[in-house]
Design a binder for these strands. Sequence first.
DNA 1: CTGAAAGCGCTTACAG
DNA 2: CTGAAAGCGCTTACAG
Lengths: 343, 343
Amino acid sequence: MQVTIKDVAREANVAPSTVSRVIANSSRISQKTKERVRQAMDELGYYPNVHARSLANRTTQAIGLVMPSAATKTLQNPFFSEVIRGISTKAHQNGYSLYMTTGVSEEEVYEGVVSMVQGRRVDGVVVLYSRTDDKVVQFLQDSKFPFVVVGKPFSDSSHVTYVDTDNYLAGREVTKYLHQLGHECIAFVGGAQDLAVTQERVGGYKTALMEEGIPIQESYIVSAPFMTTGGAEAVKRLMSLEHPPTAVVVSDDMMALGVMSTLNEMGIGVPDQMAVVSFNNLFIAEFSSPPLTSVEINIFGLGFEATNCLIEQINEDATPYGKRVIVPHYLVVRQSCGGKSEA
Amino acid sequence: MQVTIKDVAREANVAPSTVSRVIANSSRISQKTKERVRQAMDELGYYPNVHARSLANRTTQAIGLVMPSAATKTLQNPFFSEVIRGISTKAHQNGYSLYMTTGVSEEEVYEGVVSMVQGRRVDGVVVLYSRTDDKVVQFLQDSKFPFVVVGKPFSDSSHVTYVDTDNYLAGREVTKYLHQLGHECIAFVGGAQDLAVTQERVGGYKTALMEEGIPIQESYIVSAPFMTTGGAEAVKRLMSLEHPPTAVVVSDDMMALGVMSTLNEMGIGVPDQMAVVSFNNLFIAEFSSPPLTSVEINIFGLGFEATNCLIEQINEDATPYGKRVIVPHYLVVRQSCGGKSEA
DNA sequence: CTGAAAGCGCTTACAG
DNA sequence: CTGAAAGCGCTTACAG
């Protein structure tokens, strides 16, 4: 049924090993033979069986993607489509295909990664999130398996290769931007607190306040799950304070949508009564009302670079030494902070 | 290096074939032996090599996902994260893992599918879009390979298994809904015209108009790429008509965002001066200003059901007979059409 | 209930 | 430059 290397060999009058070498485009095969074999492959419609190949040469040409568990609704964030697009592009350029974990719970995801790695299904793994106490990263590290994290890992980050935005810097810049616009009462709405992004961005926010001589008020710092609903809750809490803020740094465009929609319901105008700045510059940032001022972090680039590092790591046999790549960011000014509204 | 079935066999004092049977949980192995073998597997940290297994038993326990080519920005639509979540959930329940195509151009995607199928990388394929003149579906059909389409396929759809929303009906209902609210001048803004969804939804729209005795005006029907920017263009065209519409059916929440943002810029209020209804009920529908009235199509369910059908198809050896599953939809009323605003 | 042996479709030293 | 042979780690009739 399946056309095998033997069939091609017979058709082309060579040994199977020769066909194999033609597939690998070995320089030790004459041009004529190559042509003859290739013609036979075309005629017969030959495609190599990937499993036979993987089994024999102990490589899979596949990359595993570790998504956050589907239980947390994090996955709904368009962030992921976009990183995957970056990963996919680079992977395709280098002839790698993509494997995804399918677990719903955290435990299932972990099990998926283990069997992916131990079962030799992939040559390397990219982890699409970064969280405290994550078993997956620990496991990958212990197995000495090639992997890269998108986001800044916690444990032992000096030995882990990762690709990230300088979220600390971005948080700082954005806060200073609001201060420059004249705001003194600046709040911070962050996502899940065990995520690295959240911690970095809030860290930058605090530093900026200190540098500007504004006291840090813990009641101004609220956190909520990463999605839009979280944003809504957060706002209500902030607006019920004795001295509500006049500006808010929101850790993610999705949450910012929730924030603005809640403000809208409460009759609080953006940017006039409340300035909003956020991160990621998802495509929806452009189409919210008012359009969001947001930090462009080049999500595609994060995925692309991560894959680049991973492939490097796969190709060197050396133990991964913990490379870090920082993808540049910049602020895209739209209307949600006021200021120059015709950006 | 890798722990193999032989190591386990030695440790447990049985033959490799017995270990293999324990893995498959064959009823022909005694309970005692099973326990002994399982203990040996645990001790040694054994995980089966997926490629050896696939090669020997000609099954992969993997499902291939065909995404639209990354070139069209369609992928940015959160629709995809959500179908994948559905697919992933069902796949995981049945012990399947997920493979993704990585092509950027249409041609690359096609090549990816071919080698996925011919290289026996997956047991079946789910196609995540439906378009006229699609080589992929044609190929899958010709190869008699198990596959399912999300969306209504064109060619020979009687022999293709697919899972879809009744987009025709939904388009009709939504148009009638606007008419009931008192609108007579109702426009339609659709996505790419070669997509099945677009055609079905506009078909329902036209039928509704006819049934309500409203003449169909071709100038009221505009189409644009699926993304938000497309929505903006469409609006400008509509509003420059001599008799601009008072209501618009938009084929997708993303586009609706673009539509509303453009209306906002033009100083046209939603819903007072223009009613907007759309489809898919993405999470952002809830957080736009005003919140969108949209048709909930249960995207997760589409993915889940598609995978269900696919697995059925893989397990029966019979030639696929072209099953169709329609996932129910319903209108979620929010503020963008006026009416009961406290829904 | 268990084992020995052949085979899945490749690759890769080893020879020549 | 090419071939014969062993091997990758499993599964599965076939025997017993």
